[in-house]
Design a protein around this nucleic acid. Sequence first.
DNA 1: AACTCAAGTTGACATGCATCAAGCGTCAAT
DNA 2: ATTGACGCTTGATGCATGTCAACTTGAGTT
Lengths: 252, 252
Amino acid sequence: MTQRKVISFDTIRVACKNCSLSQLCLPMGLAPEDVERLDSIIKRSRPLHRGDHLFRGGERFRSLYVVKTGSVKTYAPSEEGGEQVLGFHLPGEIIGLDAIDKACHACSAKVLETSAICEVPFQRFEELAAAIPSLQHQMYRLLSKEIGQDADMLLLLGKKNAEERLAAFLTSMSSRLSKRGLSPTDFYLSMSRHEIGSYLGLAVETVSRLFTRFQEDGLLRVDRKHVEVLNLSALEMMAGAPPSSAHKQRSN
Amino acid sequence: MTQRKVISFDTIRVACKNCSLSQLCLPMGLAPEDVERLDSIIKRSRPLHRGDHLFRGGERFRSLYVVKTGSVKTYAPSEEGGEQVLGFHLPGEIIGLDAIDKACHACSAKVLETSAICEVPFQRFEELAAAIPSLQHQMYRLLSKEIGQDADMLLLLGKKNAEERLAAFLTSMSSRLSKRGLSPTDFYLSMSRHEIGSYLGLAVETVSRLFTRFQEDGLLRVDRKHVEVLNLSALEMMAGAPPSSAHKQRSN
DNA sequence: AACTCAAGTTGACATGCATCAAGCGTCAAT
DNA sequence: ATTGACGCTTGATGCATGTCAACTTGAGTT
């Protein structure tokens, strides 16, 4: 895959104020004039394609990136080609937060499908945040949310078995896609079985077997990357923290 | 253990500017007058004892907490008494960052030994940070650092075996203690084997067997909670790269 | 000193998942 | 259509680690 047809810039030069993601993204809760100010520092590049990197481990940190359309994976490249997938990022989600500390990226970010990305130069952003309390607060919230999600993931990897992990992965995808206005029960996975396995701490073969089993049990219908969820609440139950269960629930 | 002798308030009423932890903690990089301002919003309570809670899951979020002396664990209490230990916190480390997002604590924090804790009312802190750019930046760095550490932990739980996990735990403790001016090779663990196991995603028995094995292999000398590291570099090697193919190592 | 209880250790056994290996469907290039 | 590469699936096997159970040790209490 080399060059695509030229895509009209109008389709990606959408300002934050018109962006359908603003409720999920940095502009959340900002006054209209502040959204304009934020908008003015954001760079929008032409679409990236499958395999393109947003950044690689070791590079100097300059900007945060927000997925606008498409999807991105972050991963820690290890010696001899192996990699640990750290996360999958959907529209509205911010990438690169872990690099603020050392001013250097510790992981790499690669797009999984043709995607539009907003780039947020961090230094200018920081200046702006100091001037706009609600933006600063929103940024704290986003960083905090990331930490909370990592804790959920720690729990998943520390205590859950293979079945629970895949169920949690699928219900998480379902809920995130649904927040973006897509079907919670019918979607395409942009990542390979191998990447899912890496993310969940499982071997590819285990992931594959579980997809088969979930299908046999009538929970899913699967065709390659296309997933139809037939019994969402059973999956949520299996994942461990179902909305049905009485007192303790955790969601985002 | 009920009540201790009264401890002189002078011993805990130490201002940030005189605190030996200031290089690890929020005041890092602040001008002296800004340290004073930060200091003025921080509350210092009398020492807490083993088993006391800083907060519990579900409580409203009001403050961040910084360990001054002693140690604290955070954990996600699950139904039927089980718990997942999320982290151990040493002097200078900040607790509660994950609660900013939902303004509500998702996990609980319990002190492991008699400890002094600084409380940082978050709303006042946020106001202060807006006025002090270097404090705001330091806060971003701390949040980001937490995210980076969680990623390391994800990698540990996702890809490492029991031996590598315990080695990573021990070398991490060693390096953190050493940054606080304590011996990197001779220390007391304030947490139980069970808590270590929960944190590392291992059964207590596995942890116990590994301590025995490390001792047999001449890596450690262990007596209950007292650990002497006899071969730190071997442990570091073990924690980083698989024992067999020892050609490359990764560290931070 | 004797008692109690929790924490830790050790051994025997069971099992979930990784690993190894082979085969199959899909897609792109020719 | 043919080829090759790759991703996915499926089966067979082994091992690391969890589980269960018994015992030991240490610390606090009386």
